[in-house]
């Protein structure tokens, strides 16, 4: 439980920082003070200033918004498309629809995700929206597979049989009976995908494919800090730690949730 609480704490800190940044940041991230550049951490700038004299703490707070928004919407896309597909596949077990969905899943998994992300941004230009798209697409088969797997076992339960005997259609059973019972699993998987999304967004914006300047993003802060790491290490350390703690928090939270929501798995932990 300590791990779960630590995870919850970290996630709340990040969410809190993002929320606060909507109304207040220590210093406007659009304002440049080149004379004040590359200052190490001080009281006025707890995380120092960057190569344009901007306050790193403020940039990290606003950057949290970018990371969270991208990862969250990408999870939304994955769930929104993947869960119905998974339910449909399970409801048509062994049928042609199941076959198409599962083969389609395998096909998407077979593509190298980063290459596809680069292609998407090469086509539509780099932006946060395209980063969301690139991450979201690869979330779809994950949710489809998890949903189908869990739904398949539910379809063999007595109460589903009862519902079928009562004359309910497969769509209705999927929505009314199967979905609520896989929801727990989806929340756990959602947390995991959320943390993977944060990492993916950092990776994409690190190679320049994410949110565009002046919108701060953690990955781009790292990329820009790279050449200065030897004389201004604070520029690389703080955004890196921000990513690390966010992902760590979400993973711990996800593990805790799994233990709480899915007692069958507790055995192995």
């Amino acid at each position: 439980m300590i791990a779960f609480r630590l995870g919850l704490f970290l996630v709340l800190v990040v969410l809190g920082a993002a929320a606060v940044s909507l109304v207040w940041v220590p210093q406007d991230v659009g304002a440049m003070a080149i004379a004040n550049k590359l200052k190490p951490p001080t009281l006025a700038h707890p995380m120092g200033t960057d190569h344009f004299g901007r306050d790193v703490l403020s940039m990290i707070m606003v950057g949290a918004r970018t990371s969270i928004a991208v990862a969250l919407v990408a999870v939304g896309i994955g769930m929104g498309v993947g869960v119905p597909l998974g339910l449909a596949a399970a409801a048509n077990r062994g049928g042609w629809l199941d076959e198409i969905i599962m083969r389609g899943n395998d096909l998407v998994f077979a593509f190298p995700s980063l290459v596809i992300a680069i292609l998407i941004t090469a086509t539509f230009g780099p932006s946060a929206v395209n980063a969301i798209l690139a991450i979201g697409i690869f979330n779809i088969p994950v949710f489809a597979r998890v949903t189908r797997g869990a739904a398949l076992s539910l379809w063999t339960r007595d109460w589903v049989m009862a519902a079928r005997v009562a004359g309910k259609g497969r769509v209705r059973i999927s929505v009314e009976h199967i979905l609520p019972n896989v929801a727990n699993l989806l929340i756990v998987q959602g947390t995991i995908q959320f943390s993977l999304g944060i990492l993916a967004e950092a990776g994409l914006s690190y190679v320049g494919l994410g949110a565009q300047p002046p919108t701060p993003s953690w990955g781009r802060m790292l990329a820009e800090s790279q050449t200065m790491i030897s004389f201004a290490p604070h520029l690389a350390i703080f955004p890196g730690l921000a990513i690390l703690f966010t992902v760590l928090g979400l993973n711990l939270l996800g593990d805790g949730l799994r233990d709480a929501l899915d007692p069958r798995l507790r055995r192995s932990r």
């Binding site: 659009g30 304002a31 440049m32 080149i34 344009f52 230009g125 780099p126 932006s127 320049g208 565009q212 300047p213 002046p214």
Partner: peptide
Amino acid sequence: GEIIAAQLREVGIQTEITNL
């Protein structure tokens, strides 16, 4: 580009930056 965007903003010109 980032610096120029900030300087132009000071006189009221807003820019949408795209890195290509």
